[in-house]
Structures are given as C-alpha cells and as structure tokens.
Design a protein around this nucleic acid. Structure first.
Lengths: 70, 70
DNA sequence: AGGCAACACGAAGTTTAACTTCGTTACGAC
DNA sequence: GTCGTAACGAAGTTAAACTTCGTGTTGCCT
C-alpha cells in the first residue's frame, strides 16, 4: 500500500534535521514552498522527480540515501 | 542538471531485462501504458511516487535499488 | 504572561509533469 | 518477410505536485 510517501517523508525529516536545516531553509534552497516540504515530510505527497533531485543536492547526499528506511 | 531521470531510466531497464520482463509486461503489472514505461526508460520523464512504489514491487526489489547507479 | 520560531494541519485553488492516445520507424530473431 | 519488441514524436488529458491562503500547537525565551 501507499507507505512509501510516509517512509520517505520520515527519512527526509531525519536527514534535514541532521543537516541542521529548517523546513524554510530547505524549501528556499530546493525551490518550493515550506508547505510543500511540510506535506512531503508528513507523507501527504511525494516530491516530483526534479524536486527529488534537488532535495538530494541540497542535503548533499546521493538520492539513494533518501530511500534507506528503518 | 536533470540527469536523474536518465540514470533512473537506464537502471530500470537493466533491472527489467534482468527480470526477463518486456516493457508490456511491466506496464501491465504496474498499471500504466507501455509508452509510459518507454518514456521513463528513455529519461523523458520520471515515475510518480505511486508508480515508483509499484515498479519496485513488481520487480521485487527495494526502491533504494532503483537509485543505485554506475 | 507574552511573544517568537518552527512546524502541523486543512481546504481550495493552480500548475506542471506524469500519463495517455494516437501513429511511424527500426531492428533483430526466427 | 513478418513478428516481437522497443524507440521516438506530437498532441492531448489527467492526476498529483505545488501554491496560497489560514488556524492551531508546541516549546523556548525573557
């Protein structure tokens, strides 16, 4: 079922806080609104492929790492 | 730059052929058209998050593996 | 107590990109 | 020589990402 969005959101939040960034900083750097980041972290929706690429860039990690769960 | 879609498409094709599936089979099982699979593999566009989850399911691999490049 | 920072959360609207539906072309296998 | 598989284009539709409001909450600080 649709658990991927929630797992991804949780993982992204972990990585963002580890990087000591606020949702607002991440939103600005990625180029989306803070609400969008909030929605992604809460599993409301996932990022587009372009946004996914930018998130990894801003967090300075391989995209792969965003899909490492547990 | 927008290289993620191309890398992903290449990776997906590798995994699909390894699983000995045609684009048509994958499309049917995932629930999209063959053209969509073709577009994804060629890097025209990426999958939605829901489609991404189904692709990994059908290929019987963790989503993470779809983002292992080189 | 009051205020501020950071975020959760909802609803309703917009926009973009994923996805479809045509159709043509190519190439290897048999 | 045609069958299976897939590349590739254009143009249209749809769904999901994304925005723009706004309210509520939690924790920290003085």
């Amino acid at each position: 079922m649709g658990t991927l969005k929630k797992q991804f959101g949780k993982r992204m939040k972990t990585l963002r806080t580890s990087a000591k960034m606020t949702q607002e900083q991440l939103a600005n750097d990625v180029g989306v609104t803070i609400e969008s980041i909030s929605n992604i972290e809460r599993g409301i929706h996932g990022p587009s492929f372009d946004t996914l690429e930018k998130i990894a860039e801003v967090l300075k990690i391989p995209v792969q790492d965003l899909f490492v769960f547990e």
